[in-house]
Design a protein around this nucleic acid. Structure first.
Lengths: 187, 187
DNA sequence: GAGAGCATGTAAGAGGTTACATGATTCC
DNA sequence: GGAATCATGTAACCTCTTACATGCTCTC
């Protein structure tokens, strides 16, 4: 499970609480490829302790709620490195838009085109958000860690762009078939 | 939920059993963008009946197990058309490989490159499987239904290719940084 | 006085996967 | 005799999401 390992990765950098993991790490650096829910982070931290991959200590605070600080164990480091080195099966990408398109013979052509255009707007928005993230270009990264982070972004650019290009082509292809069938109907 | 609607889409074409849905439809036409488990198909069919979107009738067979044939209702047709016309939020694509890359500073460069190359092999295999599917090119589709099916495939080609290209670039970028840091170490 | 920030959690549900059960017939 | 096909299901589990609960402090 990748969430456990992402948490181990952050704990490997420094001991943390569930709160800081969520607000300073997941919501910042990896949100665009592995968003994580607060509830799930807390549950997974419990599991990591059970498995012996992390330990927790309560830090008492007088003016604020106490914090539970998690630290990675030796076993946790071993497990992290094992998982990082493993060849993982690429996950399935399930896209409802493709289901809609596949069965779109049951709705109007214009309606389907509107659905595709709305999807295009959303993907463009998403691409713009990715482009707004401020990390130096691949050729200008100063160290490996930065490069690794940049490369994850780079995939976002590429795949969003490919998706948008495909949407354009799909819209054109549908319009072209519409014209063809109207001409055929006139004869 | 897209699975319900995919099932409604197939039922809209003709009444079916869970078995034919799985073996003749899901495992054939939509498997590459919405694979479905047998268990889940049966569960979802029950739910569709509960919701009034389908009805079921048992067909007795003497030499084989009885079949439960599901038929879409008027309500089901309305629901299908509503959903097909709806603008849906693009789903999040969570990719463990990006988590691995993001934290790969904790493992050897060569190990990370091996992980990336293994991913490349798997994506290439997947692309080859998509290319083996026999549907006429976009410009040669004879009707809308065929075109819609072809377009879903087309996205597969594009996004797999983008992924493979990215993998090449990522591997090159990591190798380039390695060389740079080795040169720096010599001075 | 209202809302944001700090900090941890419970409960319930949706969607998907894996393993297992049954039992007749047909093909090699 | 063994495997594949036909056909439907149960039970348990994993991952992720949503809604809700608590309670103190600081800032506007």
């Amino acid at each position: 499970m990748s969430l456990s390992h992402a948490i181990l990765g952050f704990l490997r950098q420094q001991p943390q609480t569930g709160y800081t993991l969520k607000n300073e790490h997941f919501d910042k650096s990896v949100a665009y490829f592995w968003p994580a829910d607060q509830t799930q982070i807390y549950k997974t931290l419990d599991k990591l302790v059970e498995q012996g991959f992390a330990t927790s200590e309560i830090e008492f605070q007088s003016d604020r709620p106490n914090r539970k600080v998690y630290t990675i164990t030796k076993q946790g480091k071993v497990e992290l490195e094992r998982w990082l080195s493993e060849a993982i099966e690429p996950p399935m990408y399930r896209d409802p838009l493709l289901v809609q398109l596949f069965f779109s013979d049951f709705i109007d052509r214009e309606t389907m085109i509107a659905v595709l255009m709305s999807a295009k707007a959303k993907h463009e928005e998403c691409l713009a958000a990715l482009k707004a993230i401020d990390i130096p270009a691949v050729s200008k990264c100063s160290d490996y860690e930065q490069l690794a982070g940049r490369l994850t972004l780079e995939l976002g650019f590429k795949s969003k762009q490919a998706y948008i290009d495909w949407l354009d082509e799909a819209i054109e292809a549908i319009k072209a078939m519409e014209k063809k069938s109207k001409r055929a109907a006139k004869r």
